[in-house]
């Protein structure tokens, strides 16, 4: 029952996106043009920490712009309808799953373009991809909840950034550290510590969102 509901809601999200193709293309365009700006302003990034941090900052802004619409795009009537036919929590979980998938995909596409256009000085590619998957997934879960909160407070993009950046900074920091380990080709305890931290943060944020959402959706 639950899984079917969530499955249907995820499918609905997907259909929504394919119907509004401009939104998907908009995000991809956003990432590509930001990377181009980085390319033209830096020429070549020789310093690995800077290269790494720049990528994560681009991903952070992509996540905000992408996920800000998650709750805001739905009209009040449509949301009310969804809450009556489905469990509100199922809707949250569905949105989280959808945002997770899309942001991880965006992250992987992003690093491909970023590596192609600027450079790719990574020694442990597998770990770097793991860092992107874990980091983007945690960012997506966090920003889904923040988007639900921000949609209650006037819906504006600035509010989303103000609320999201400080709260999700630990996620971003863990992601930067882990991918830095990967870029340097180090796979010690330090790297796995940060991988564990990312997973723990993702679980904690998701669990909190799941527990608190019932208080949030009512108007």
């Amino acid at each position: 029952m639950w899984t079917r509901q969530i499955g249907k809601l995820v499918k609905r999200e997907l259909l929504n996106e394919t119907r509004q193709q401009y939104a998907v293309f908009g995000i991809i365009l956003f990432v590509v043009s930001t990377i181009f700006i980085a390319r033209f302003s830096f020429k070549a990034v020789k310093d690995i920490p800077t290269w790494n941090a720049l990528f994560w900052i681009i991903m952070l802004f992509a996540a905000v712009t992408g996920i800000a619409r998650s709750f805001a795009q739905e009209s009040r009537g449509k949301l009310l309808y969804l809450y009556t036919v489905a469990d509100p929590r199922a809707l949250l979980v569905a949105k989280m799953i959808y945002n997770n998938i899309s942001l991880v995909a965006l992250g992987l596409a992003g690093i491909a373009i970023y590596g192609f256009l600027i450079e790719f000085p990574v020694q442990n590619v597998g770990l770097y991809i793991l860092a992107i998957v874990l980091g983007c997934s945690a960012l997506a879960s966090g920003f889904t909840m923040i988007s639900a909160i921000a949609s209650k407070g006037g819906n504006n993009f600035a509010l989303m950034a103000i609320l999201g950046f400080p709260v999700l900074l630990p996620v971003l920091m863990a992601g930067i550290r882990l991918s830095k380990f990967a870029a340097d080709g180090l796979t010690g305890d330090g790297a796995w510590q940060y991988a564990g931290l990312l997973i723990a943060l993702n679980v904690a944020v998701s669990a909190l969102a799941y527990l608190l959402f019932p208080y949030l959706w009512r108007d």
């Binding site: 909840m145 909160i149 407070g153 509010l159 103000i162 609320l163 400080p166 709260v167 949030l216």
Partner: peptide, 29 residues
């Protein structure tokens, strides 16, 4: 940011609910 969020919601009960949830998030982080 919690204070900014509070300022952006007019209705008292709604403001209390939404900002409480955000505050719990902020505390965990």
């Amino acid at each position: 940011a919690y204070l900014v969020l509070r300022n952006s919601i007019e209705d008292e009960q709604k403001r209390a609910r939404v900002s409480s949830i955000y505050s719990i998030f902020a505390y965990v982080m």
